[in-house]
Structures are given as C-alpha cells and as structure tokens.
Design a binder for these strands. Sequence first.
DNA 1: CGAGATCTTGATCTGACTCAAGAGTCGTGG
DNA 2: CCACGACTCTTGAGTCAGATCAAGATCTCG
Lengths: 224, 224
Amino acid sequence: MNAIVQRPQAFAHPAIVNAMVLERGLPVLPVAGDVGLSQPISNYKAGEEIYAQGEKADTLYQVAFGCVRVYRLLADGRRQISAFHLAGDVFGFENDETHHFFAEAVSSAGLRSLRKPSTSDAATLMFPFTLRSLVRAQEHLLVLGRQTALERIAAFLLDLAERQGGHDEFEMPMPRNDIADYLGLTIETVSRSFSELKRQGLIQLNGLRQVELLCPQDLKDMCC
Amino acid sequence: MNAIVQRPQAFAHPAIVNAMVLERGLPVLPVAGDVGLSQPISNYKAGEEIYAQGEKADTLYQVAFGCVRVYRLLADGRRQISAFHLAGDVFGFENDETHHFFAEAVSSAGLRSLRKPSTSDAATLMFPFTLRSLVRAQEHLLVLGRQTALERIAAFLLDLAERQGGHDEFEMPMPRNDIADYLGLTIETVSRSFSELKRQGLIQLNGLRQVELLCPQDLKDMCC
DNA sequence: CGAGATCTTGATCTGACTCAAGAGTCGTGG
DNA sequence: CCACGACTCTTGAGTCAGATCAAGATCTCG
C-alpha cells in the first residue's frame, strides 16, 4: 500500500504528468537528471515568498504543481502581476544578478530549483523557456494596452483553460485580487465582468474558483 | 584601398559604433563575421514593412540605424506596439516558425539580417537578446497595467533618453500616433500629457520630435 | 506657396475607479 | 454540528481620467 503511494511520487505523480502534458512541445526541463531540475520538490504554502526584488538571482525554478505569481510594486503600493506560472513553467531568470520582481506562491505550490548554470549552459537550457515567456508577455501587452475589461477577462479565462489542458471546466487558483492586478483592473471590475459573462450565458461558476466555459467560441470572438 | 574600405565597414561604421555604445554590456551581435550579422545593411524607408503577421519567421534582424516598431492588431483595428527597436537592438525571434507580429520601419532604418541558425546556435547567440527583450516587455507591463497617462509619458521619455546615450536632449523618432499605441493611450492624451509636462517645466520641445529633459530627476520621481 | 499630414486644444461622454455596504465562504473552536 | 469571525466576493451609487468628437494650428515637402 505504502509502495503504491510512493512510486507514483517520482514520475506518475499527477502534477508532473500534468506538467509534461501542459508544456506541449517543450519537455520537462531538463530531460531528467543531467542538470538538476529533477531535484526534490520544495513546498511553499499559499502566500509564501519565493524571492523578493533586490535579492540575488542565482536560482531558476520550475513549477511542479500549484501556482506562482511574479509581480512588481510601485512606491505607492500599486501592483502589477506580470505572470502566473503553472505546472511546467520555468521562471526566475533575470538580466543581471539581481531579482527585479517578487515571486510568491498563490496556492500551495511545489517547485524544483536549479542553481543557475554557467552562461553558455543556461543559454542552451533556458532559451526555449525565455522565448515562451517573452511571447506571453508580448501578448499580454496587447491585453493591457488595448482591451476592455470584459475582453481581458475573456482572454484570461481562455488562456487559463488552455494552459490547464484545454478543458471547458477548470479551476482558477488565484483570488479576484490577483486577477485584477494581472489584468490592470480593480477587483470590483473583475467581479462585475464575471457577473456580466454569467449574465450573457458564456460562463458558469461552480464555486468561486471553479469556472465552466459554456461557449468558448463566443469568448474567443469576444477577445480576438 | 578596397581592403581599407572593407575593414572599417565591419567595425568603425558610425551606426555600428553607435550600436556598441547603446547596448552597454552586450556586444554587437555577433562579435563580427562568424555568424552573419556583419552582413551588409539593407535600407528601409519610413513606414516600410519588414515582416507581417503570418509570414514565415526564418530571419533575425539587428538595427544598424533608425527605428523599428513591432506591433499587433485586433480585428477592429486597435493596435498595440509592443516595442520600438533602436540601433543595436535585435528582433524577429518567434516561438514557432511564424511571425505573430508586424514589423515596420518608423523612420528610415538600416537593418542587418541573419538567417536563423540552428536551434542550438540560435540559443547561444540569441539568449542575451531574448532576455533583454523579456525584461523590457515585463517592465512595460507595469506601465500599461498600473500607470497614469502622465507617468507613462515620463517613463517613455526616460527610457528613450537612456537608450540613446543618456543625454538630456534627444530625438523621438516616432510620431505621437505610435507613442499612443505603444503606451495604450490616444494621440490626444499623449499630446495633452506633453503639454502638461511642458507646463510643469519638466520638459521642453525644440521642434516636435526634439525633446529636452529639464528636470530628469523629477521625471524619475514621477514614474517610479 | 499650397496641400496633406501631423499635432494641439476644447467640449463632452463614458468605462472603469472609488467608496460603501452587504452577502457568501471557509476554517476554527466550543 | 453549529456558531463565530475573518476573509473574499458581489453589488450599488457617484466620480473621474482618459476616450471621443470636433475644430484649428503647425509642420513638411513638393
């Protein structure tokens, strides 16, 4: 009984299978033991800090399960979440030796970490992940710069759905608060937008964090 | 004679020296002849298309002189410029084999191009440039998500100044129109914000595109 | 010098923000 | 098992920053 519980822990653990499925086209990094991301998973509680702005940046992280937010703050407390990272995502790279962002667990999360390798190794290893992050950030610029509140929420839901396997029902791991700071809105506007999408029959909420897309095509038409 | 003309072409051309100065910490790519970005400069007229969304992405570009805008469009014509590229900047990388953005010369521009090398070469070569683009995009997310019109303009001016050598007087190569679509504003709001900064004595316009920062520190305080 | 493009300014409108209150949810302990 | 309290979320009313609409002014370049 114990053994049956243990074996899955290494490879068939749902979170890891999840990661491999989610990062379609990109293997879990690395293709196992060579460079260190096959290290044990460290666990973070909801809200726990992973790194802070100003800290030395010498470690990369890959999400094994759970969700991480990466954000910046303005002096007066305004916050912009630049990305949510889900199972399979890699984060923590910086231009220089210092973190310019904060990273925290949203929900309880498991992370594999890798001491940053030499520049040339890092390049080969990290390039596809950096590129992926870049594309995501650039797409998000369009959302923040030019879309309405309703369009932002629609795009957000579709993105989350796709990244969690493409099912029409899925969980949002983050509170409204975080969604607002990711989409450049207030929490009230986020809430009103969800209500509006419900009213239009495009989504249904089965519990506060459990979303069902009733009409994904209409959502796509709405935001693209 | 021929030889003498040729050698400087590789290293002493003003545009290239410029590039080397601007990209502090990152050499002109590559450190000459090895991989092809020492190729001749192709010239683009103001407004000329470099590539379009949907085209095959098999070439990378480095700006030798001038300015390039990279942008996306929504179906109804809304436009978001995700980046302006100045001398020394490298752009054109994509996640897959297809361009998801448009690129056009803002002012007349000169570009060196490089057929995209094999994945492993590309990684080593492009990693620092990708990382730099990622950091820029992430910083821009904060601007678009959480800053006011005046703060956006201030941040924009400081960024342009820094990227053009850090002088207090410099040229904006792009029209108000493009600034608006980069900062997620309308052209009228951009214009009003410039007027407001002038009224506050923080900047002076010597010609429509020639800016002078009268009080860079106050601008910094305004936006950070 | 003239025509089109680009930029500025004014007046009005509106989508999202702010402020305020109430409802729902969840965990804890009695 | 329920009651309490803290948190999270929703909804309403009023406000405001920036958008839209509409003239003009200025610049550029043939």
